[in-house]
Design a protein around this nucleic acid. Structure first.
Lengths: 182, 182
DNA sequence: CATGGCATGTAACCTGTTACATGATTCC
DNA sequence: GGAATCATGTAACAGGTTACATGCCATG
């Protein structure tokens, strides 16, 4: 999965500008994919050069001009090729988990901070996904609904597991305190 | 979090070779971090040059020689700096979720394959984590235990949610079939 | 005799981010 | 007056992967 594949998928439904695409990625996709302008604009240029999309400049008053990109038949073909290509494994990289793994080298208070930070972040993501689901569930495709429900369920579970982690940590602290009094 | 931070953390406990580090990453870390030899060896060289670790060549008979790396006081200082630096957000990139999101453009059978692929992969990860937990739980630090338990719980949840997704999909297929008969 | 484990290393490549530049308009 | 939104783009850099090169030993 490259940014090109994702952009092609987005353009399958309607023509958009690079700016629009970025906003879509931030809202709907943010849970499983992300890209910066520094990726999007050069990729769009390359795709146009390769004939996968066409550019139409739209003049606007009071605002900068827009470049609206439309997928070509060649682009649709390319997108289908992606959708039928072998699947790539998920990629997950967690600074929080890494720190937790090395937790024996820092104070328990720091570990608690790690977990609390994770809990706050997960809560935010969850709230965002739930809001999105409420706002869009009538206009979403069935598989998009599955997709967002999976995201919600996963974050709910992560929230539980991080909470459990914090409980385990507090239990450890308590045990240690009891040991110290022996 | 860079590969340097992770390598420093690993060397905090004992001195290891690049080859050993790679194997550790594959087994214990694979759930939340990964690096290839093409990252590990150049990083180790750079770290030695920067005085964070020292190299000791160990001659072996019947096998290639090993370079065993040991963390220095400077390296420990650097590692502590990482552990107290601001936390980075988790990174998650999912080809499967992306395809699911664009599911309206392919046959339902293909979507089912996506989900089944995800289920198989998650089961594998889960089995690996559970085996690791059984094998190592007596030698793990408390926070490492929390870490692996979080991984297990998360994969159990993902398995449930993917299963739910498959059920939802089958329900949709059924509804569609009923609609077609009207 | 081929495969896989042990062990290190590099060069070419890919993919992506950050930070900057530009500039008008609207909202507080 | 300052910040945010709209809108595009690039250059420098970071961080990584893949594939290859080397070579011996043990196992099937």
């Amino acid at each position: 999965m490259t940014s090109q594949d994702v952009i092609l998928g987005i353009l399958m439904k309607r023509s958009l500008s690079g700016y629009d695409i970025k906003h879509l990625l931030e809202s709907v996709f943010s849970y499983f994919y992300n890209a910066s302008y520094g990726t999007i604009y050069p990729t769009l240029s390359k795709m146009e050069k390769d004939g996968l999309i066409t550019k139409e400049s739209v003049l606007q008053e009071g605002r900068p001009n827009k470049n609206i990109y439309t997928i070509t038949e060649e682009g649709r073909k390319q997108f289908r090729a992606y959708m039928y290509s072998p699947m790539q494994a998920n990629e997950f990289k967690s600074d929080g988990m890494t720190r937790l793994f090395f937790g024996e080298f820092v104070d328990p208070e720091v570990i608690a901070r790690y977990l609390e930070h994770g809990i706050a972040g997960t809560k935010e993501t969850l709230a965002r996904l739930q809001k999105m689901y409420e706002d869009c569930k009538d206009t979403m495709s069935p598989t998009q609904e599955i997709c967002i429900l999976i995201g919600i369920e996963n974050n709910e579970s992560t929230l539980r597991t991080l909470g459990n982690g914090l409980d385990r940590l507090n239990k450890l602290k308590l045990e240690k305190r009891l040991d110290d009094h022996e």
